[in-house]
Amino acid sequence: MQTIDAMGVDAIIVRHASAGVPWQVASWVDASVINAGDGWHEHPTQALLDCYTIRERVSSLAGLRIAIVGDVKHSRVARSDVLAFTALGADVTLVAPPTLLPPSLAGWPVEVSHDVDDVLPKTDVVYLLRMQRERQTEALLPSLREYTARFGLTRERARLLADDALVMHPGPMNRGVEIAAEVADLPRSVITRQVANGVAVRMAVLFLLLGAGRR
């Protein structure tokens, strides 16, 4: 890292399987460090692009009811989204079986539910997390089939949503597991907008940190 720093780079973008590595790197170098995802911890630019994508459809996040459904425990997207959505005034509900929630939610400004059917009718945005296949081998789930039956956004379940509710997903999707293919392709799904906005938001981050925003 000090070698890279010595080359005079202005920024180091860090994506790492271990939580906290961007913080460690930042303590060693003078360059700006941008976290592009660290372990289960955070994915800040994903949260920024998610907020921007919602703002494209809705004027403000204040008072918006957002349900984050799925494997919150292992999700850096969920951790950053909870911080960003609540900072902008949204009411966030985490929906998952207890095995896929963090062991402690002390200090998290969220509601928790284990019943997605109860939550969906009261939701403005449903944000689905990617379900990793290995979770069933870690005794966190009996099977992906049971997960889909209880928490997946199936075509039937999507009918519980209000007409103007949005469907989001950080990608890549497991079609047929956390989200049915037909639901992912509905007009209310803004999943491809998220991907497109990701390019713009990350350009903006670099511009603000390294370009005009730096001065």
Binding site: W40, E42, P102, S104, G107
Partner: peptide, 9 residues
């Protein structure tokens, strides 16, 4: 606990 949950460790 609280901190491991927050820190993603």
């Amino acid at each position: 606990g609280e901190w491991s949950s927050r820190l993603g460790i």
